[in-house]
Simulated scan of single mutants.
Amino acid sequence: MGDYRGVSEMQEKTSPGPDPSDSGAKGGSAGTADAAPVRPVIPAAAAKRANASVIGMIVALVVSIAAFLPIILMNPLPKSDGFRPNIDVGAVARNATDVAGFTPVTPDTGKSFTSNYARWESGTGSGVPTWEVGYLTPNQSFIGLVQTRQSNPTWLVQQTKSAPVTGTRAAGGQDWELRDTGKGEKSMVLNYRGTTVVLTGSAQLDEFAELATAVVQSMDANPAVTVSPSASTAP
């Protein structure tokens, strides 16, 4: 009987039981899985201030747009072909004929050139009265035309921006004096039928030649008049 009790006691001691460390690990995992995620809570006052800042920014943006929108609408963007004023060069020239003492040139370039101004200048500052027309070329370059019957060397240097004479250019059956600054601008000068015509601008020489040809044709069709300049106000 004593032997059986000894065997039974040994079996009880060697029988595997639950490991305390295992139960602790399992319990910890279960506790972590069951725990709810922590969500930050913003105080009501802070949330109100944040909303007020966003609303203020939106209101300021709307006010800015409302302030600038009328300006944009009143100043529409120009069309792609640009603004081309409708200047009646012939009409202005007719009004200037009597005061000029000669028939101002009105070059006919068809629709290839457009004029953005035409005027008679009394020459108060320079002492040289002039007929002036501005032309935009087909390539959107500019050529200014100036005509006078009272040209002098000082005035001519001013008109050509002190550019040196670099040669001649034939146009309209006449040899024009070519002056080039070497900085993009050039001038063509012609003394013909008692007046001097100066073309100045940044256009290409072929465009200069086209306008110069039309100038000569206009001068040939309208000989200089001999009427003395009147004292009437320039148009």
Rank of each mutant, 00 (worst) to 15 (best):
G2E: 04
D3W: 11
D3F: 04
V7C: 00
S15I: 00
G17R: 11
P18F: 02
D22M: 10
G24F: 11
G24L: 15
G24W: 07
G28H: 12
S29Y: 15
A30D: 15
A33C: 02
A33D: 10
A35K: 14
P37L: 03
P37K: 07
R39A: 05
R39K: 02
V41I: 15
P43D: 10
P43N: 10
A45L: 10
A45T: 11
A46L: 13
A47V: 08
A47E: 08
A50S: 08
S53R: 13
S53L: 06
S53C: 10
V54L: 05
V54Q: 07
G56Q: 06
G56F: 02
V59G: 06
V62R: 03
S64F: 12
I65D: 05
I71W: 12
M74D: 08
N75T: 12
L77M: 14
K79Y: 00
K79M: 12
K79C: 10
D81C: 00
D88G: 00
A93S: 06
N95W: 00
N95K: 15
N95G: 15
V99L: 06
G101W: 05
G101R: 05
P104C: 13
V105M: 08
K111F: 01
K111W: 02
S112D: 15
F113Y: 13
T114K: 07
T114A: 08
W120N: 02
W120C: 05
W120G: 04
T124M: 14
G125Y: 15
G127I: 09
G127V: 11
G127R: 01
P129M: 08
T130A: 09
T130M: 14
W131N: 10
Y135F: 14
L136C: 05
N139V: 10
N139R: 07
Q140P: 01
I143A: 01
I143L: 05
G144Q: 11
L145M: 09
V146Y: 11
R149S: 09
R149M: 01
S151E: 14
W155D: 12
V157T: 08
Q158R: 13
T160C: 02
K161L: 08
S162G: 14
T166V: 14
T166K: 00
T166I: 00
T166R: 01
G167W: 02
R169E: 11
A170N: 09
A171C: 10
G173Q: 02
Q174C: 02
D175T: 08
W176R: 03
E177A: 09
L178M: 09
L178I: 01
K183N: 15
G184D: 03
S187A: 10
V189H: 00
Y192K: 01
R193V: 07
V197Q: 01
V197M: 03
T200C: 06
S202H: 07
A203D: 07
A203H: 10
Q204R: 03
L205C: 04
E207W: 12
E210V: 06
Q217G: 12
Q217R: 14
A224R: 06
V225P: 00
V225L: 14
T226R: 11
V227F: 08
S228G: 12
A231I: 12
T233C: 06
A234D: 01
P235R: 03
P235L: 08
